[in-house]
């Protein structure tokens, strides 16, 4: 990669007029890319710098540089505040997003596999209804879900946020497309001839071949749950059940009364996004798998 990158400019040295024009436009485009990178990175940079400041220096100092370094006292303050509720919020988030996305992926892959590898009456109708589900906005569902959950006294419980997270219509769509393209019918037939049951065939052949798509579905659902603010906001009133996003939001609304909270919101935001960003960037190729198979179909 680097080799060809380095060679390219030297090739252009003896350039014709058209090629010289290209090199000028490439300078402009590089400049544009750097400006955009700055735009995307500056808020994160500000967050990192600000996490080292206390509530007073946050206001009184130059925002883009360090002043009165107190990162570690902020950290211990964050984890100690209100009996360590921040840790609980992080664990809740892991529970909601981790368990929710795992179950959603398994259920969706089972359904997608069935829709791809079997023929039965009403198959296309079922698939159309599920596809319609992709287009239904999540927040439109949250309100009636709240009303329904309160009828069965499930609001303000872990279940009220976890159960709806098990459903991923997009996951069914993606696993159907992927199973259709990657699992040969002959392999399934071979399994049947060997006397394996249908579920065993799914488990040992289907899941194995579909695993790249499963990672993608898991990622999408994980982020969807992690990002969903409306559902926990309407469902939960007990602070102990909050995911970290809702917890930080509640602190953000209180720092008028408790000024130290603003420093905790800042460092809490940083701490809660670091693992996500690392997971995200290192699993980037799986995003692309999912996005391509999605866009090809649409």
């Amino acid at each position: 990669m680097t080799m060809t990158d380095l060679e390219r400019p030297s090739k252009k040295r003896g350039a014709t007029g058209a090629e010289r024009l290209t090199s000028r436009t490439s300078i402009i485009s590089m400049a544009f890319l750097f400006v955009m990178a700055t735009y995307f990175l500056v808020p994160v940079y500000w967050l990192v710098i600000s996490s080292t400041k206390g509530p007073t220096t946050l206001y009184g100092s130059q925002g883009f540089w360090f002043s009165n370094f107190q990162f570690f006292s902020n950290l211990s303050g964050l984890f100690g505040y209100s009996n360590g509720i921040f840790v609980r919020w992080i664990l809740n988030t892991v529970l909601y997003a981790g368990v929710g996305a795992t179950v959603a992926t398994l259920i969706a892959s089972l359904a997608g596999y069935a829709l791809s590898k079997y023929n039965f009456v009403g198959k296309e109708a079922i698939f159309s209804i599920i596809l319609g589900g992709v287009l239904v906005p999540g927040t439109a569902l949250a309100l009636p879900l709240y009303l329904l959950m309160s009828k069965v006294h499930l609001t303000d419980t872990y279940w009220s946020v976890l159960l709806p997270a098990f459903v991923s219509p997009f996951g069914v769509f993606l696993s159907r497309v992927y199973a259709g393209a990657s699992i040969p019918d002959e392999l399934i037939d071979a399994g049947r001839i060997d006397g394996a049951g249908e579920f065993k065939i799914f488990r040992s052949i289907g899941l194995k071949i579909m695993s790249p798509a499963l990672v993608t579905i898991f990622l999408f659902q994980f982020v969807a749950i992690w990002n969903n603010f409306f559902l926990p906001l309407v469902m939960l009133s007990n602070q102990n059940l909050y995911p970290v996003t809702l917890g930080l939001y509640s602190w953000d609304n209180q720092y008028g009364q408790a000024p130290q909270l603003i420093a905790y919101v800042v460092i809490g935001a940083l701490i809660s996004v670091i693992p996500l960003i690392i997971a995200f960037l290192s699993l980037q190729r799986f995003w692309q798998t999912g996005l391509t198979s999605g866009s090809v179909k649409a």
């Binding site: 995307f40 990175l41 808020p43 994160v44 982020v223 992690w226 990002n227 603010f229 996003t245 809702l246 930080l248 939001y249 935001a269 809660s272 996004v273 996500l276 960003i277 995200f280 960037l281 980037q284």
Partner: peptide, 10 residues
């Protein structure tokens, strides 16, 4: 792509 890793509320 980094900002997409930051939840909307945050």
């Amino acid at each position: 792509f980094l900002p997409y890793g930051v939840p909307g509320v945050i």
